[in-house]
Design a protein around this nucleic acid. Structure first.
Lengths: 341, 341
DNA sequence: CTGAAAGCGCTTACAG
DNA sequence: CTGAAAGCGCTTACAG
C-alpha cells in the first residue's frame, strides 16, 4: 500500500491536519514538529497524493494545454516548443498543468465543458483550433478563462497570445519589396486557419501600402502541405511567369515550393526568391537555407500560461491579448532583383 | 459550481450509486433509468470528475510517460514521436496517462517513488534517462513496473522497448562495407547514453566480423552535439586522412560532421561517405540528403504503453523486453568507393 | 500551535 | 435492478 498522510501522522505522533499544514507551507506549526514531520515524510517517501489534494482543496488550480490534431502536427516542432514554454511556466509558477488532446472527431463526442469538468480545469490554453471545430463555437458560451494560440477571437472569457501575423507577413513582404521585387505571389495555407488568413491580410496590406498591384490569381492555397505547395507553385509560376518572388505561409510549404520550382528548371533565389514562415528546424538546412519569419513559440506558451494563471488568481491584467515578438531571419532564399531593362 | 454526480442523481430521481453504475458501464441497470441518466447527464454536461474517481476506485490505472531533459530535446522530434505513440495507445486502450518531466537536477529534489506516490501512477515509461541519473539507481529498488526507452537494464520490475541499436549500427556499417569502404570512422555520442554505447558496440562488432582493423583513434565522441561533431570530424579526418566513411550516432551530429568536412574542402559523399542515425525530420532536406537508420519511435512509445498496461492488468506477457523494427534509409550521403589502385 | 470532524465527488461491497 | 453507507486521502474552518 502506498504511504498516506495517516502513516506520517501516526509515526510522528500528530494529527493528519498538522502533517497537512506542514506540506502546505503554513507557518503556524512549531519548528520542532515541522522538522520531525519532514524527516519522517522523507524516510517514508511521502508526498501528498495530488488527486486527494485536488478534491479537497478549494484553492486548487489547474491549467490545461489542449492540443488539436497532434497526429497532423508531428512533423513540425510547434507543439513541442509550446509545450516546453508551458511546462517551464508551470514549473516556475508552481501551478499544476495537464496536457489534453483532441481532434475534430473527438470534439463531436465530448464537449469542451465536459473535458473541463472531468479534469477539474481552471483555465485552458488551446492550440491549433480551426474555426470549423466544434470547440470554437463552444468557447464563447463558457466562463472558463481561455488563452487562444494562433487564433484571435473576442469573447469575454478569452484572449489571444500569438505572433502578430499580419504585421509579420507585412514585414516579410516588405523585405521582398526592399530587394526590388514587385511581382510577388503568395502561397497561403487554408482559410479555416486564422494564421493563414492573417498572413494573407498582411501580404495584401503591404502591397497596398507600397501601391503595388494586387492580383487575385497571385494567391494560391496549399493547405500547409509540402506536396500541395510544390504543385501549386509550379502552376502559379507557369500561369504567372512574371512573378519574381513568393511569400509562403509556412516553411514546409516554402520547401515544397522550392522543390517544385527546381523541378521545372527554376532556380531559387536566382530566378524566384522565396520567403517562408515559422523558422522550423528544417529551414536552416535546406538548399538554399530559407529566409523566413521566426516565431517565438516557446515564449507564446510561457506567456499564455502566465497570463492565464494571473487571471485565475484574480489579477486584472491577465486577460489582455498580446503579441510575442517575431524576427525575420535572413538566409539565402531571397535575393536582390537585378533590373532587367 | 461544477455539476456533480449528485446533480444528475437528483434530477433523475435516483441515487448516486446508480448514476455511477451507468458511467462505469455496469450492465445491471435497467434500460430506462440508464437512458434517462445519460440524457440528463448530457444536458448538464456532466462527466465524472477524474480525481474523485481516481481516489475512490481501486481499479484505477494510470501510466506515466516520464520525459528527461525536455529542454535539451526540443531540437529533435524524438519526444514528440514517442508522445504521439503513447497517446494513441492510451486512447485505444482507454487507460489514463500523464506526462511528467524531470531533469537531473530535479531528480535530486524529488525521488521517483515520491513522484509516483504523488501522482498515483501504476506504471511508468521512462525516456532519455542517463546512467548517471539518480532515478537510474532508484529504479531497481522499486516494484512499480517500468518500461525503459533507449536504455536497457535488467531488474525484476523493468523491461526495455527500443531499436536494436547494436544490430542497427551493425547494419549501417555493413552498408558502408558493402559499398567498398574499409577505413571507417565513427562519431559516437556520449558514454552515459546507452544508445551511444550500443551503437559503438555494433560498429565494432561489424568491423570484427568483416575482419577489418579496429583503431581506437577512429572513434571520437561529440556529445550528440552538432557543433562538436563538426569539430571532431575535422580533427578525425586530419589525423586519419585514410578514412573514407563515417558512421555517426545521430543525424544531427552527421549534419555537423558534413558541414565540418565541407569547410576544409572535403566533399560528402565524393571524398567521405557519411551514414547517420535517427532519420530526423531534417535529414531528407540536407545537402546531400542523409543516408541513415530510421527508428520507429512512434511504435516504441505505443508498444511500451501497451506492454505496461498488460503487465499492470496481470498479463504475464507484459514485461518482455522487445525490439521495434528499424529501417536503413538510403539517400545520398553514402557512395560506392572507387578503387584507386 | 494543534486536533476533531466535516466534506470534496466519486466507487463499491452489502443488503434487499 | 437499486439504495444507504463507508471509504479513498487529503484540506480546512472551528475550537481550544
Amino acid at each position: 500500500m502506498r504511504v498516506s498522510i495517516k502513516d506520517v501522522a501516526e509515526k510522528a505522533g500528530v494529527s493528519n491536519a498538522t502533517v497537512s499544514r506542514v506540506f502546505n507551507g503554513y507557518t503556524d506549526v512549531s519548528h520542532n514538529t515541522r522538522e520531525k514531520i519532514l524527516k519522517i515524510a522523507k524516510e517514508l517517501n511521502y508526498v501528498p497524493n495530488s488527486a486527494a489534494r485536488e478534491l479537497s482543496s478549494k484553492q486548487f488550480i489547474r491549467i490545461a494545454l489542449i492540443i488539436n490534431e497532434l497526429e497532423t502536427n508531428r512533423k513540425n516542432s510547434i507543439v513541442l516548443e509550446i509545450l516546453t514554454g508551458v511546462h517551464e511556466a508551470a514549473k516556475n509558477l508552481k501551478i499544476d498543468f495537464m496536457l489534453l488532446f483532441t481532434t475534430e472527431l473527438e470534439q463531436k463526442e465530448i464537449s469542451l465543458t465536459e473535458i473541463i469538468n472531468k479534469n477539474n480545469v481552471s483555465g485552458a490554453i488551446i492550440q491549433g483550433l480551426k474555426i470549423t471545430d466544434p470547440y470554437f463555437s463552444e468557447i464563447k458560451n463558457m466562463t472558463l478563462p481561455i488563452a487562444l494560440i494562433d487564433m484571435s477571437f473576442s469573447a469575454e472569457n478569452t484572449f489571444t497570445v500569438s505572433t502578430d501575423n499580419i504585421q509579420a507577413a507585412y514585414d516579410a513582404v516588405s523585405l521582398l519589396i526592399a530587394k526590388g521585387h514587385q511581382k510577388i505571389g503568395m502561397i497561403a495555407g487554408r482559410p479555416q486557419a486564422m494564421v493563414s488568413v492573417d498572413r494573407e491580410a498582411g501580404y495584401i496590406k503591404c502591397l497596398k501600402e507600397f501601391e503595388l498591384q494586387i492580383n487575385d490569381d497571385y494567391i494560391v492555397e496549399a493547405d500547409f502541405n509540402e506536396e500541395r505547395a510544390s504543385i501549386e507553385a509550379i502552376k502559379l509560376i507557369n500561369q504567372r511567369p512574371e512573378i519574381t518572388a513568393l511569400f509562403v505561409a509556412s516553411d514546409l510549404m516554402a520547401i515544397g515550393a522550392i522543390r517544385g520550382l527546381n523541378s521545372i528548371g527554376i532556380r531559387v533565389p536566382e530566378d524566384v526568391s522565396v520567403i517562408g514562415f515559422d523558422d522550423s528546424l528544417i529551414s536552416e538546412y535546406t538548399r538554399p537555407p530559407l529566409t523566413t519569419v521566426r516565431q517565438n513559440l516557446y515564449q507564446i506558451g510561457y506567456t499564455a500560461f502566465e497570463a492565464l494563471s494571473n487571471e485565475i488568481k484574480g489579477d486584472s491584467e491577465g486577460m489582455k491579448s498580446q503579441y510575442v515578438p517575431y524576427q525575420i531571419i535572413e538566409r539565402e532564399s531571397v535575393m536582390k532583383l537585378e533590373k532587367e531593362d
